[in-house]
Design a protein around this nucleic acid. Structure first.
Lengths: 194, 194
DNA sequence: CGTCTCGTTGAGAGTTTTCAATGTAAGTGG
DNA sequence: CCACTTACATTGAAAACTCTCAACGAGACG
């Protein structure tokens, strides 16, 4: 079944009965996404949270000078949304774009809140993964404050080895917080040293 | 009662019966904290999450060059802990220090998990505040990636106006991610412009 | 074959840090 | 309450880091 990746992900954190699985699965909507498609747009409300079944997405903001800054990459088995817009149902400041085509499972905030009442353990699941996301986000903040650009790039390479050769380098630059030109220069310097 | 600030904070997000209040209150331990005291130390396990009843704390990490980077300030009515250590019960990478003396209410992870079963709505409360903390953390990440040091300082001043004149400037520098010297230069430049 | 996006390279400019010196405010012990 | 000590803030000059702008090359795709 298509949602197995999702249900297994959930089952790694809480115990699911067969009835729970059915209740959960019934609330999700499947959607195929094409490369470069914008799943959510800045200015609109992020009605849903997306679980990536296949492919890869990214969330990013555009600053006043038109530069993009990447908040998150979401390969298969990850969640992605604009959390601010999703929980407040106000206008989003983020864009979510498809890097590599695939399929996502969408859950609206309204349906999520219904599910929390129908399947209380699911609220525990989201509490846990939100705690984990908070830890990651804060660790990245520490990294941005304490590491040099060179160290942030090396850190990215070891943390996401599968992505390094799979996505354009300008996206890595927009994630670690340097210009594409400067990332290029760092890379050529790293190669020269070997 | 001393825990009113805490119980009212919780009650802003969920409905609490009198019985719930008692169950919750019984799990917290009060602790007076003195200026410069380290509530949690790097290398130890952050057994508890702390709710600040009065005073002000900060969490920070120390990088390989000995520089401090501040993750969070916690004035009264805020939560603070090393989330990574608290949820995994592994060794902490953060220090939590008292900036201004006051009182905190401590809840251990074990007691928190018991409370989640005793008072299911409390798990909802923590889900909600964790969602909010995630939004803040990610917004700060965006700010660090897209704003100049000057803009980050101005942003800090408007976001935490009460703190600007209440804590040493070197702490603000360690929060926005510049050296104390450079913050001083930015400030003198801002004054000159007026 | 063109077109478009991406990556590379170089020179120059802008930002931020480092280091060292000085001044100032605040806490401590007598 | 004063003298002493310590931590914090300021300033300047030089160095380090990162960006900007412009040009060029390579590959992907229609």
């Amino acid at each position: 079944m298509t949602l197995n990746l999702l249900l297994n992900n959930i089952a790694r954190h809480i115990i699911l009965s067969e009835a729970d699985r059915k209740k959960i699965a019934s609330r999700f909507v499947l959607k195929e996404v094409k490369k470069k498609e914008l799943l959510f747009k800045e200015g609109a409300v992020a009605k849903d949270v997306a679980f990536v079944l296949s492919g890869c997405l990214r969330s990013y903001s555009v600053d006043e000078n038109g530069f993009e800054h990447i908040l998150q990459f979401a390969p298969a088995d990850w969640w992605i949304t604009d959390m601010y817009s999703f929980i407040s149902q106000k206008k989003s400041h983020l864009n979510i774009e498809v890097i590599n085509a695939g399929e996502v499972a969408l859950l609206s905030r309204v349906d999520q809140l219904h599910l929390f009442d129908e399947v209380p353990a699911l609220e525990r699941y989201f509490r846990i993964i939100t705690e984990n996301a908070l830890v990651s986000s804060r660790q990245r903040l520490i990294d941005n404050l304490s590491l040099t650009a060179r160290q942030r790039y090396e850190h990215f390479c070891t943390t996401y080895p599968s992505m390094v050769n799979d996505i354009p380098q300008k996206l890595i630059a927009a994630y670690i917080g340097v210009t594409p030109e400067f990332l290029s220069k760092m890379r050529s310097e790293l190669l020269r040293k070997k």
